[in-house]
Design a protein around this nucleic acid. Structure first.
Lengths: 143, 143
DNA sequence: GGTTTATTGAGAACGATTCTCACCAAGGCC
DNA sequence: GGCCTTGGTGAGAATCGTTCTCAATAAACC
């Protein structure tokens, strides 16, 4: 089991959530994944750990993780994919439309610039989603 | 009829699309709207112009406009809203979760900064969606 | 171990979007 | 101008992702 899994479980427990087998399975699947996964994909993988897991539980666990700030949801077209993210600061996602890998980038300058603009507009930001969709370095159209 | 409506129709026609009554109605509704509209809302308004319009046609017209680069789709939660946007340069949307008004911002500095980072990461951007969700100046929680 | 109560899985329900198909009308051609 | 081809159409069925319902289960605290 990954170390992060324990940490998250401990935090959830302290927030009053019960640590159940299905939840453990889902959390571990998400942390292990090297790219963002759709709920269906999470389900398939979680069932290898705990065969009884249901789709509803995957969604519920995603909700819990989201509510606790451990996860963000990113969409590609009409399909929803999930990815781990514990960063609270401004960041953006580079989503490769071919391999679906999601790379996270941050920039302090970028962040300051954006915050200044928001203030100027009188806009109070609650959350953000900065998604750049295209091809990652590995998936460039050959030639 | 707005001038932009004519321009878009001309362009669509040159791209091989037929200019039909339902399409005209949908395009006009979107251009007239002061905030982003859901497909259902577009349908309701389009029917005031052409009562026979169907929901499927709204979706199909949105697809056409999207394919031709006249429109972007922005999502708030699981609900999908559409908004006009012909700008090709980097820009971001401030979405008010209360009144749903979408404000568009641009920044050259912001743009340059982001482009530089993308180049550094070897990422080839095809499209982007920068969405800041929160409260606009008019909808700040009172007090 | 017993009790409480949040959590669960299965499947129904839901809402948004897409598809199907017979009919229609835009636009090119004569 | 009228005719023909074919892309576009509306209605409703189908599909997809997500959420809900509810009886059964199992954490967590004693």
């Amino acid at each position: 089991m990954l170390k992060r899994t324990r940490d998250i479980q401990k935090a959830l427990s302290e927030s009053g959530y019960r640590i159940t087998q299905p939840r453990q399975a889902v959390i571990e699947v998400i942390l292990r994944a090297r790219r963002s996964l759709s709920p269906e994909e999470i389900l398939a993988r979680a069932r290898k750990i705990d065969p009884g897991v249901g789709l509803a539980t995957v969604y519920r666990t995603l909700d819990v993780l989201h509510a606790e700030g451990y996860l963000e949801r990113v969409r590609i077209g009409n399909k929803g994919y999930t990815l781990t993210c514990t960063e609270k600061t401004l960041h953006f996602h580079l989503i490769c439309e071919r391999c679906r890998t999601v790379t996270e980038l941050q920039s302090d300058r970028f962040s300051r610039d954006l915050m200044a603009q928001l203030r100027a507009a009188g806009f109070e930001a609650r959350k953000h989603a900065i998604e750049i969709i295209g091809r990652c370095a590995k998936c460039q159209p050959s030639e």
